[in-house]
Nucleic acid binder design. Structure first.
Length: 582
RNA sequence: GCCAAAGUGGCUCAGAGGUAGAGCAGCUCACUCGUAAUGAGCAGGUCCUCGGUUCGAUUCCGAGCUUUGGCUCCA
């Protein structure tokens, strides 16, 4: 562990030094450039510049060439502590550096690093000499715009991203990893496997589920509904639009208006498409007097909501404007809160694990500065969340002040097959809505009391979850999720009838199956089935028909011939029931 | 929204100031084949949209729309 930390630190130093080398190269090319910041980041580094002209991809080659040249010169990195005045003179023409200098707290040391041709205001540390950098272990990756200090009101700078490692071999491994990410891209797989599409001409950020994608979605939703029933939830359905009164009361029009689709006018009232389901579930709650005996109420809905996401942030299925939350709202008494939270967390973990995610981390977010609700409630809720996490023995981090203004929350993040983290589940307390809608229940003492309200989504949104699943499995879904579990390929036209018979038999058994009766040759059909990543391709000809057998080609290419059909049906059923990967 | 790049048949992409091409997919015909592509032929495009420059624009210029990579990592 300690070794790893040392290695990580070393890696970070290399990356940071690399960014200085890049800055020197860029300044060689553009002596008038303004330089901003250039830190090491995960897997690499970047540097922000204010350049006289936009950069082209070709410029990266030139910068790379100059960087290699700089590295080969074995330049020494020299650290020097200077006074503020000296620093200000040194960076006289560099407005961003001067701003950074100003931001260094009084009393803190101001240091500069010089590597020969380039001096930067920098805390360090750096390598001793460019000797320690490997000119074949870095690569400039992309050019991007970035606001100075990340603020939209600030000028846009040109950022160059690069990756750097201590050896060419590590670089190679990382570049291969990037290739793998590209291959798994859900947008690419969605097209190749004919799962979904987006249509810019019909509205950006809105998802169309094709038959194959819809089959997977149904498998997810069926499982979701069944498990919710089993775990004490009731399903509700609510409308897609509501009058402005509803959104004014909920506070969405106050806090969230820019995230909502604009209103539709009808009967002199504005109607809004829902960005969230909660106000509707509250309407159901309000429909009757509620007794402590009715609580806890657990209402779930696969509710489709619409949000106006910024045009530039839309991304495949991961960031869309119309999506289906696997939403639920729990209305509980204060006494029930602890048990409910523990239960919600347990259920979340069960769901995530069912989909093959085993590496799960929790993030507990506490009260932010601007927030509503009594402190006691915040404390009680936050502690309930913490107890639940600890009871499950989950690794967790606390994000102090990271909660929503209306309540503390737990987010669950999973790691996918190639180590990327995705946030899926969220469990949030809400002290705002019960107050705003004046929710009450009658307690056993006859007093009306305010219930706790908990929002939770386990998969997050079906669209995004599907995208994550698709990338996690690289399109090779385990049979229980596979859109086409079995494809039957007859070796020749004479066996079309037997193939059809088998297809029906499999369908009767509850499998998603089809027979390929096109006039392609058998080889082409097998290839087509493999390309679609179907888990089982069943090949049948005379031998199989006579003996009531199937020959199976598994997704990975493995072949087993002459399996009795009934035995194969059992094998598939077992794989589906156990949610096994094959 | 902002910066940059891109938008050419269903898909992946090539191309040039003189109204376009490949592979795959589709359709037709022939072949009926035992574990990753049978062959031949046909059809398919307002070259994103709207303006401008030009004898002529899909190509050059401008605007718009959309997509992609970023805009969190703090000297």
């Amino acid at each position: 562990m300690a070794d790893k930390e040392v290695a990580d630190e070393r890696q970070e130093t290399i990356r940071h030094s690399m960014s200085h080398v890049m800055a020197e190269a860029v300044l060689e090319m553009f002596p008038d450039a303004q330089i901003a910041i250039g830190p090491a980041i995960e897997n690499g580094f970047y540097y922000d510049f204010d350049l006289p002209r936009p950069l082209l991809t070709e410029d990266l080659d030139e910068i790379t060439r100059r960087m290699k040249d700089i590295i080969s010169q074995n330049k020494t990195f020299e650290r020097k502590v200077v006074s503020r005045k000296e620093a200000a003179e040194l960076f006289a023409g560099q407005k961003y550096k001067l701003e950074l200098l100003d931001a260094i707290p009084e009393g803190e040391e101001v240091s500069i690093y010089n590597q020969g041709g380039f001096t930067d205001l920098c805390r360090g540390p750096h390598v001793k000499s460019t000797k320690e950098l490997n000119k074949d272990a870095f690569k400039l990756l992309s050019i991007a715009g970035a606001y100075w200090r990340g603020k939209e009101s600030n000028p846009m700078l040109t950022r160059i991203y690069g990756t750097a490692w201590s050896s060419p071999k590590e670089l190679r491994v990382y570049l291969d990893h990037l290739e793998d990410i590209k291959k798994r891209d859900h947008r690419k797989l969605g097209q190749e496997l004919d799962l979904f599409s987006l249509h810019e001409e019909a509205g950006p950020g809105l998802v169309y589920w094709h038959p194959r994608g819809a089959k997977i979605r149904l498998a997810i939703e069926d499982f979701w509904r069944n498990e919710h029933y089993k775990n004490g939830y009731d399903m509700v359905y609510t409308p897609h639009v509501g009058k402005s009164w509803l959104w004014e009361t909920s506070g969405h029009l106050g806090f969230y208006k820019e995230g909502m689709y604009p209103p539709m006018k009808m009967d002199n009232t504005d109607y809004y498409v829902k960005p969230m389901n909660c106000p509707f579930h509250i309407m159901i709650y309000q429909n009757s007097k509620r007794s402590y005996k009715d609580l806890p109420l657990r209402w779930c809905e696969l509710g489709t909501v619409y949000r106006y996401e910024k045009a530039g942030s839309l991304h495949g299925l991961m960031r869309v404007r119309g999506f289906t939350q696997d939403d639920a709202h729990l209305f509980v008494t204060p006494e029930q809160m602890d048990d409910e939270i523990i239960e919600v967390l347990r259920f979340s973990l069960f769901m995530l694990r069912s989909f093959g995610f085993t590496d799960i981390k929790a993030y507990l977010s506490t009260r932010p500065e601007h927030s509503v609700g009594e402190q006691e409630r915040w404390d009680a809720a936050t502690e309930a969340l913490r107890r639940a996490i600890e009871k499950e023995g989950l690794a967790y981090q606390v994000d102090e002040g990271g909660g929503a203004f209306y309540g503390p929350k737990i987010d669950l993040k999973i790691k996918d097959a190639i180590g990327r983290e995705w946030q899926l589940s969220t469990v949030q307390f809400d002290f705002n809505l019960p107050e705003r809608f004046k929710l009450v229940f009658t307690d056993r003492d006859g007093e009306e009391k305010r219930p706790y309200m908990i929002h939770r989504a386990l998969l997050g949104s079906i669209e995004r979850f599907f995208g994550v699943l698709l990338e996690h499995y690289a399109g090779a879904f385990p049979p229980w999720l596979s859109p086409e579990q079995i494809r039957v390929v007859p070796v020749a036209e004479n066996f079309f009838d037997y193939a059809k018979k088998l297809e029906m038999k499999f369908r009767q058994a509850g499998f998603r199956a089809s027979a390929d009766l096109s006039n392609d040759r058998m080889n082409a059909k097998i290839r087509a089935s493999q390309m679609m990543k179907n888990p089982y391709t069943v090949i049948v000809g005379e031998k199989e028909e006579t003996a009531d057998q199937v020959s199976v080609r598994y997704r990975g290419g493995k072949q087993v011939n002459g399996i009795p059909t009934s035995e194969f049906v059992e094998e598939v059923r077992k794989a589906i029931d156990t949610k096994a990967q094959v």
